[in-house]
C-alpha cells in the first residue's frame, strides 16, 4: 500500500486513489481521419512496463482530481507527481 502525494491535497494512502492506466495518450483530435489501425492503436494499445511507468491517477476518494504519477512498477517507488497538462519530468 503506497503513499501518493496528491498535487492538490498532499500525501494520502493509496486506498484513496484509483489508477487510470498509462498517461500521455492523447485522444485524437480528428478521429474520423484515422484508419482502423491508427484508431486501434489509440484505443487498445497500452504499455505494461516493468520499471519506470507514466500513469494517470485520480484522487477518487478525495478531491476527485486527475493527475500524473511516475512510478517504478517493480518496487512501487514514485519518482514524480505532476498535474494534468504539465510537462512530464525525466521523459
Amino acid at each position: 500500500m503506497f503513499i501518493i502525494n496528491c498535487p492538490y491535497c498532499g500525501e494520502r494512502d493509496q486506498s484513496e486513489f484509483s489508477c487510470g492506466g498509462e498517461a500521455h495518450i492523447e485522444r485524437p483530435k480528428q478521429p474520423t481521419e484515422l484508419s482502423d489501425d491508427q484508431w486501434a492503436e489509440y484505443l487498445f494499445m497500452r504499455k505494461n512496463i516493468k520499471g519506470i511507468q507514466f500513469e494517470r491517477w485520480n484522487h477518487a476518494h478525495g478531491c476527485r482530481k486527475w493527475f500524473n504519477v511516475v512510478r517504478d512498477t517493480s518496487n512501487d517507488k514514485i519518482h514524480a507527481v505532476y498535474k494534468m497538462g504539465e510537462r512530464p519530468p525525466l521523459k
Binding site: G20, E26, R27, R56, N58, A60, R64, K65, W66, M84, G85
Partner: peptide
C-alpha cells in the same frame, strides 16, 4: 460521473 470528470479534466480542459 467519474468518466465525465475524466474527460473534462484531461481531454477537454
Amino acid at each position: 460521473l467519474s468518466k465525465l470528470e475524466d474527460y473534462l479534466q484531461t481531454e477537454w480542459p
